[in-house]
Simulated assay, not measured.
Amino acid sequence: MLLLLWHDTLGIGGVGREVYVLYRHWYELLALGTFPVGDVTWQYPPGAGLVLLAPGAVPWLTYYQAFVALTLLADAVVAVALARAGRTGSSAGAWLWTGALPLLLHLPLARYDVQVTAFAVLALLALGARRPRARLGGALAGLGAMVKVWPLLTLLGTPRGPATRRAWTSAAVAAGALLGVMVLSFAHPLDFLRQQGDRGVQIESLGGSALSLARLLAGWPGAVEYRYGAFELTGPYVSSVARLALLLTAAALCWLLVWRLRSRRWNAATPLDAGLAAVLLFTVTSRVISPQYMVWLLGLAAVCLTSRHTTQRPVALLLLPAAALSSLAYPGLYDEVINVTPTGVAVVALRNALLLAATVLSCRRLWRATA
């Protein structure tokens, strides 16, 4: 992975450009005490600012080198935590993380999703431990949510009663405290909220695959444009597809709420399995499925495999070819994907089909095991 990042010429190339151009630009603004203002590519909660500022604490390295070093450190933290959990459960989780992350090639080292995943992994391991630590798990999930929102989903599987109250209270306190610090320390910490509503349908999402297939098979007249930091499809029916994605996300939330109400059987693996199912649901129904989202899913699948009681082993296996196809699509064949060629569309569509199958299987097995 480091060698690929050093050369950074595979496929479309320039995977690390996001760090040494975009992240470095944001770092310089944050160092002056302000979040990006009116920047359509800044779409992250305030806690992300601390992750982007962290490389500045290693002054003997360049920003790019320090960022990669800290990402490797987060990777090591996750690996050690999974290995320790495997001592009383299964070592399969540590093996999955160690072996599957390189399927994404050098992408994980050039994005901050490994750091975010570390929060979610540690939160779930605390919640699913032999002696669950709900307050610690909740606090970690709350801090992770302030960095990239989705780690909050890891709390959906906490058992009813005191554990849920302690976890959600800790999450709220931790997130609120961090938000308060960021509001007092930086200008415009909530400007990211303005950049969310107008996003369209990214070419790598499920909706993007449907529109791309329509262009190939039925002559749909849409086009691909670079907007909001991603390549999006524009043209007839795009707004309808985007609205449908939002409705499906709402339906996914409703299903998760029904699952919680109907569930009667909990074991140590239930919080882990529910976390993976929830993130899968929100991933496949999103208008955006960036390739780095696979880092989240691999991390959560690895946590599930630390428990011998998990229902998600087949789901974890489905995520392996999905990760490989993601790296084939980006950076390997991204020119083909952008130009909506049969090869590019086929690779992304197959990846998305695997993610959809993994989501359905995950939810079905979770429901059967608990409800």
Rank of each mutant, 00 (worst) to 15 (best):
G99T: 00
A94P: 01
A100C: 08
A92F: 01
S90L: 11
P102G: 09
V116M: 04
A110I: 04
P108L: 09
L96P: 00
L107P: 03
L105K: 14
G93R: 02
A94H: 06
G93L: 04
T117Y: 02
A100R: 05
G93N: 07
L105G: 13
L103Q: 02
G99N: 07
P102H: 09
H106D: 10
W95R: 15
P108S: 11
G89M: 08
A94W: 00
L103H: 04
V116L: 12
T98K: 08
T98H: 11
L96Y: 04
L101C: 05
L109K: 10
W97L: 00
A118H: 11
W95P: 01
H106F: 12
G93S: 10
A94K: 09
A92K: 10
G89S: 08
A100M: 05
A118E: 06
S91W: 14
G93C: 03
G99V: 01
R111S: 02
L107I: 13
A110V: 08
L105N: 12
P102S: 09
L103W: 03
A118S: 13
L105Y: 12
L96Q: 02
L109M: 08
L96V: 05
A92R: 15
T117S: 15
H106R: 12
L105W: 15
W97E: 00
V114N: 13
W95C: 11
G93Q: 07
Q115Y: 07
L103N: 06
V114L: 15
T98Y: 08
P102Y: 04
L105S: 14
A92G: 04
G93V: 00
Y112W: 11
W97D: 00
H106I: 05
P108R: 05
D113M: 05
L101G: 07
A94I: 03
Y112I: 11
S91H: 14
L104I: 09
A118L: 13
D113R: 11
S90D: 13
V114T: 14
A92I: 01
S91Y: 13
Q115E: 14
A110T: 10
A118I: 08
R111K: 14
W97M: 00
L96W: 07
D113Y: 10
A110Y: 01
V116I: 14
L109H: 05
S90K: 09
A118D: 04
P108C: 12
L109R: 09
L107S: 06
A92E: 09
A110H: 08
G99R: 08
Y112L: 15
A100Q: 03
R111L: 03
A110Q: 11
L104T: 07
L104N: 03
L105R: 15
H106E: 15
H106S: 15
L107W: 05
G99F: 06
S90F: 02
D113W: 02
Q115T: 13
Y112N: 14
L105I: 09
L96I: 05
L109V: 00
L101N: 03
L107E: 07
L101Y: 00
S91R: 15
A110M: 12
V116T: 14
A92P: 01
V116H: 01
A100T: 04
A118M: 15
G89Q: 07
Y112Q: 14
H106V: 11
V114K: 13
V114D: 10
L105H: 14
L105Q: 14
D113E: 15
W95F: 10
P108H: 09
L109D: 03
G89T: 04
W95S: 12
S91T: 05
P102R: 11
S90A: 15
R111V: 12
L96K: 05
A118N: 08
V116F: 00
P102W: 03
L96M: 07
L107G: 04
A110R: 09
